Simulated scan of single mutants.
Amino acid sequence: MTEHIKIVEVGPRDGLQNEKQFVDSAVKIELVDRLSAAGFANIEAASFVSPKWVPQMADGAHVMAGIARRPGTIYSVLVPNLRGFEGALAARADEIVIFGAASEAFSQRNINCSIAESIARFEPVAAAAKEAGLRLRGSISCALGCPYQGETPVAAVVDVAERLLRLGCDEIDVADTIGVGTAAQVGRVLRAVGQVADLGTRVSGHFHDTYGQALANILAALDCGVRIFHSSVAGLGGCPYAKGATGNVATEDVLYLLRGQGLDTGIDLDAVVDIGQWISERIGRPTSSRAGRALALKKAP
């Protein structure tokens, strides 16, 4: 049987949150619905953070109320605290996403506390999620590099992974937030994380394409045994630490790569190409996906 790879589509949340012009709620709802119909098993649909900090995500409750839920699909939301969790619970989220940095400098510069303190803040959120019977996912940002301190020590990534697992996380995201990682580095980090968590079932790769390394890094992660990856349709989502740089790796490119490797995702690539063209038109800029552009041109009359 063909080996299955799980793709977590992050476009509706991680992708759109950096858009400067507000994307209408109806467009966000349609984006999630189109992605559901294309076969994604897990979609990051919204976040429940303060609209003061992320105004693009202020309509999270409305989006979650408006989507047509596909049986078997996990709809995830990002939450920073108990207040956000309460909103996510009311919105019937299937999975709660919490986050911590592997870089002390990043943690101090962004939320004015240490890594340990930042994760301790999630203890009540994790406990509430478990009590409610929800899946819990923990994301490790700056796992391969930090805009303030450079390369992230492997031991720091493992430490955060262990802390998140102790909170009860079902899945751990190893995230290259600024896209500086290389294949050899990915191998070193993931093999170390694999000492504390099963790479095939509990660890995901979240790679940004700032330096054009995301697909190579995915191949390196596959070689290590990782079978869960994050991507964003049309490459939605810029990199806030590298002006004008590409952020999230494009879903179309990832699906094309995996298909070439003979791996199954259960996702309709042609449908995702159409979705990528559609959302790019809605936000007024071309797709960042090379495979998406090439396949769209082949389909054009």
Score class of each variant (00 low, 15 high):
175 A>C: 15
175 A>K: 03
175 A>V: 15
175 A>R: 03
175 A>W: 07
175 A>I: 06
176 D>C: 08
176 D>Q: 09
176 D>Y: 11
177 T>F: 06
177 T>K: 10
177 T>I: 08
178 I>V: 15
178 I>Y: 10
179 G>L: 13
179 G>C: 13
179 G>I: 14
180 V>C: 14
181 G>C: 07
181 G>P: 10
182 T>R: 15
182 T>P: 00
182 T>C: 13
183 A>D: 15
183 A>G: 14
183 A>T: 13
183 A>V: 14
184 A>M: 14
185 Q>V: 02
185 Q>K: 14
185 Q>P: 02
185 Q>L: 14
185 Q>M: 13
185 Q>D: 04
186 V>G: 02
186 V>H: 03
186 V>E: 03
187 G>C: 04
187 G>D: 12
187 G>Q: 14
188 R>F: 01
188 R>K: 15
188 R>Y: 00
189 V>I: 15
189 V>Q: 01
189 V>N: 01
189 V>Y: 02
189 V>P: 01
189 V>W: 03
190 L>T: 01
190 L>D: 00
190 L>S: 01
190 L>H: 01
190 L>I: 02
191 R>Q: 05
191 R>V: 00
192 A>C: 02
192 A>V: 01
192 A>R: 00
193 V>L: 05
193 V>W: 03
193 V>C: 04
193 V>Q: 06
193 V>F: 05
194 G>F: 00
194 G>I: 00
194 G>M: 01
194 G>R: 00
194 G>Q: 00
195 Q>M: 12
195 Q>L: 11
195 Q>K: 14
196 V>E: 12
196 V>G: 12
196 V>C: 14
197 A>C: 06
198 D>F: 03
198 D>R: 12
199 L>G: 04
199 L>F: 04
199 L>K: 05
199 L>Q: 02
199 L>W: 04
199 L>C: 03
200 G>P: 09
200 G>Q: 10
200 G>S: 12
200 G>K: 05
200 G>V: 06
201 T>G: 10
201 T>L: 09
201 T>N: 05
202 R>F: 00
202 R>Y: 05
202 R>W: 02
203 V>K: 06
203 V>R: 09
204 S>C: 14
204 S>I: 04
205 G>T: 07
205 G>H: 04
205 G>S: 05
205 G>Y: 04
206 H>Y: 10
206 H>N: 09
206 H>G: 09
206 H>T: 05
207 F>N: 02
207 F>L: 08
208 H>E: 08
208 H>W: 12
208 H>M: 07
208 H>R: 11
208 H>I: 11
209 D>P: 05
209 D>V: 04
209 D>R: 05
209 D>E: 03
210 T>A: 06
210 T>Q: 08
210 T>N: 06
210 T>F: 07
211 Y>E: 11
211 Y>G: 00
211 Y>V: 06
212 G>V: 12
212 G>R: 11
212 G>S: 10
213 Q>P: 05
213 Q>F: 08
213 Q>N: 15
214 A>H: 10
214 A>V: 09
214 A>F: 09
